[in-house]
Amino acid sequence: MTTAIIIQGEEKMTIKEIEQAVAQYILKECLPGARPEELTSATPLITGGIIDSLGALNLALFLEDQFKIELQGHEVSKDYLNTTASIANLVHSKL
């Protein structure tokens, strides 16, 4: 099952909605077997060993594809992608 993002009409998704979609992706792709409640807004993804460099790249491609945004090279880093909260903020700023 893929994680589908529904953008209703012209309405911009909320940060919370984005974060939920990102969390779903992380749980499926990077944390198979983990309980959803384990992953919080502040769980460190890159510095916490959950996502490695290839994982960050795949996450970036997922974000670009699902939210129809474009990420800059420097944004594919722990400065922007280390928590679901920071990812949601980044995506939201580009919608």
């Binding site: 944390l31 983990a34 384990e38 992953l39 460190p44 510095t47 916490g48 060993g49 959950i50």
Partner: peptide
């Protein structure tokens, strides 16, 4: 331990 905790432990 949770999977997230284990991943973090390994990364350290």
């Amino acid at each position: 331990p949770s999977i997230i905790e284990l991943k973090r432990f390994c990364a350290e």
